[in-house]
């Protein structure tokens, strides 16, 4: 029924890789677009993990420049061509998948953890605690998020870690709002009242009774957000505030390659752009499908 149960069906009873009736994946299974997206995402994860073994020129993927072979068009040796420093673009894209996934997942994880904790606290207590936390949240939401992330990244020096911190800072308020809304409804449940009646402390009530019961919509939201987070990391890298050279990053590759379009070397920015496009598209489509399946009212009925 819920997302976590869906995962449990897969992980614990993973031997039979068949979605259990009732799990989210079971409801998604008839949606070919969602299944295609899921396949693409699994493929990207596999590529990211096994990059050094898959990439045709791993040392170039890491950043070794061989200037003699610069700007070669796609062909037999270099399937997607080479960039201005003579590095194989396919290898760079494969290594860039790691950066993208680490960045995307870390941002969503940090943002969701911080936002959920703050939002659940605000919603559970209500009153002035709620006011205080949610007004701070509003202040963060009032800034244009990319601009705030860029400012923080400038202050912190460009690196993948700092890009993650900078973007997480603009990411948590959305989760705080979502978690607060859920917590406000859970607060009124009888089991919360019963726990208070036993004498359980507020902190334990939040940890044991509120958080586990608001997690499903937050996990769904987090899944949908990974694509957007990857895009934001790429945007920071594009303006030179994200992942520094020579680490491979799709956004930085597009940025470096864009001037070569005019000189006819179209493959330099195009392929990293396509990689970014496909990843985010797949992530969004899967997120939509999971959200629809998590809600019984929008669930498609599959015979």
């Amino acid at each position: 029924m819920t997302l976590t149960e869906g995962f449990r069906h897969y992980v614990v009873r993973g031997a039979a890789l068949r979605p259990q009736p009732g799990s989210v994946l079971w409801h998604v299974r008839g949606d070919w677009l969602a299944m295609a997206s899921l396949t693409v995402i699994i493929l990207i994860i596999v590529v990211a993990i096994f990059g050094p073994w898959i990439a045709p020129y791993p040392e170039q993927g890491v950043g070794l420049a061989i200037v003699e072979q610069k700007l070669q068009p796609p062909g037999w040796h270099f399937v997607l061509g080479t960039d201005s420093l003579g590095r194989d673009i396919l290898s760079r894209i494969i290594f860039g998948a790691r950066t993208a996934l680490i960045g995307g997942i870390a941002i969503v994880a940090i943002g969701a953890a911080v936002g959920t904790l703050l939002g659940a606290t605000a919603g559970y207590f209500g009153g002035w605690v709620d006011e205080a936390i949610m007004r701070v949240t509003d202040v963060f939401l009032a800034f244009p998020s990319l601009l705030l992330a860029m400012t923080v990244a400038v202050v912190l020096q460009p690196s993948l870690g700092n890009a993650i911190i900078a973007i997480s800072l603009t990411w948590w308020p959305w989760y705080a709002r979502l978690a607060r809304g859920q917590a406000v409804s859970i607060r009124e449940r009888k089991y919360v009242k019963a726990a208070r009646g036993i004498g359980v402390s507020h902190a334990t009530v939040i940890r044991r009774h509120v958080l586990p019961n608001i997690l499903t919509p937050i996990l769904v939201q987090a899944m949908m957000d990974i694509g957007a987070a990857i895009l934001t990391v790429s945007a920071l890298s594009f303006v030179g505030l994200g992942v520094p050279q020579p680490t491979a990053d799709w956004g930085a590759m597009i940025s470096e390659g864009r001037m070569y379009v005019q000189t006819g070397h179209w493959w330099v920015p195009t392929f990293p752009g396509l990689a970014l496009f496909i990843t985010i598209m797949a992530s969004n489509l899967l997120g939509d499908a999971v959200q629809a399946a998590a809600n019984p009212r929008t669930r498609r009925t599959v015979p």
């Binding site: 449940r189 089991y191 009242k193 019963a194 044991r208 009774h209 019961n213």
Partner: peptide, 8 residues
């Protein structure tokens, strides 16, 4: 039923 936490 509603006085028991469904996750415990």
């Amino acid at each position: 039923v509603s006085s028991l936490n469904p996750r415990l």
